[in-house]
């Protein structure tokens, strides 16, 4: 009985308790714990440096609190017990102890596949135990596609770049600036139309003119003034605004209807954007 209690308290119970804490406290604590919520792909070398620079309480990696990690490496010295399986993981940068609690048959089945000398991918919780960091694994899976090995280390590098704050990728930097620069009232519908038109843009990339027109027409429908009109816009108004023949507008409108961007209101000449309700 006592053993059961212990297991619930200190062992396998950490995942649910972590989740409840976040929902219970929300607000300020959620911003703090958000950084540590994800699973960080890391090398053992990186973890060993956490150990040296950490204050003992929280484990930080390049200033970011880390609690869950993903490691990939060779299994060594596997030791099976009734309640847990432990082994040393050698990822080529260093070695770390891994412990996996075995509660259910599925856990046992998973750990049977883990053999010394084979590659595994481990997802787990980084735990400071008497000054030594170990990983309490949630999952230990044998590697089946060895390109995952290359991918894992590239992910380690990528995550390292993003948490140390070096510029990552010009395209992501630009996309993250859009909501900041258009902080006016118009920002929401503008964003909606941009997000929306993008896919149709790819579809009709060989017909540049009609795509441009469809963006222009969509923008008119997404204009907040027009969004607020109960019956939407008459096609002639669109035609006059863009100085484009009515028939071409009708073609574009047909396309926008099929995409679910606009819908007809009182008759076949009045249409309204679906962007704002």
């Amino acid at each position: 009985m006592q053993q059961d209690g212990n297991a619930l308290f200190s062992g396998g119970g950490f995942m649910p308790s972590q989740t409840t804490q976040i929902t219970e406290y929300g607000g300020s604590s959620s911003t703090k714990s958000r950084s540590s919520q994800g699973v960080f792909p890391v090398t053992v070398k990186q973890i060993s440096e956490c150990l040296h620079s950490g204050d003992g309480k929280s484990i930080t990696l390049g200033g970011t609190e880390v609690s869950n990690v993903r490691l990939l490496g060779l299994v060594m010295n596997k030791i099976e017990k009734i309640t847990d399986v432990s082994f040393t993981l050698d990822d080529g940068t260093g070695r770390i102890g891994i412990q996996r609690w075995v509660h259910e048959q599925s856990d046992t089945n998973e750990m049977v596949l883990v053999r010394s000398g084979t590659y595994v991918k481990v997802n787990g919780h980084l735990k400071d135990f008497q000054g030594k960091l170990t990983v309490m694994a949630f999952s230990v899976r044998p590697l089946t596609d060895f390109d995952d090995l290359t991918l894992h280390y590239i992910e380690c590098i990528h995550v390292h770049i993003s948490i140390t704050g070096k510029p990552v990728n010009p395209s992501t930097a630009i996309s993250s600036q859009i909501p900041v620069s258009s902080s006016q009232f118009l920002s929401a519908p503008n964003m909606a139309s941009k997000n929306y038109v993008a896919p149709s843009n790819y579809m009709t990339s060989n017909k540049a003119n009609s795509t441009d027109l469809s963006i222009q027409v969509a923008n008119i429908f997404d204009d907040p003034v027009n969004l607020s009109r109960e019956h939407g816009l008459h096609l002639e108004e669109v035609s006059n605004q863009l100085r484009v023949p009515l028939q071409r507008i009708r073609d574009v409108v047909e396309h926008l209807i099929s995409e679910g961007h606009i819908y007809s209101t009182i008759d076949d000449n009045h249409y309204k954007s679906a962007a704002n309700g």
């Binding site: 060993s48 010295n77 030791i79 040393t88 080529g92």
Partner: peptide
């Protein structure tokens, strides 16, 4: 085996394998 178990708790970065 117990000794190895204790050993497995430590982190050893002394003999890395360089790519």
């Amino acid at each position: 085996m117990e000794h190895r178990r204790i050993e497995s708790r430590k982190m050893d970065t002394s003999t890395p394998a360089v790519f």
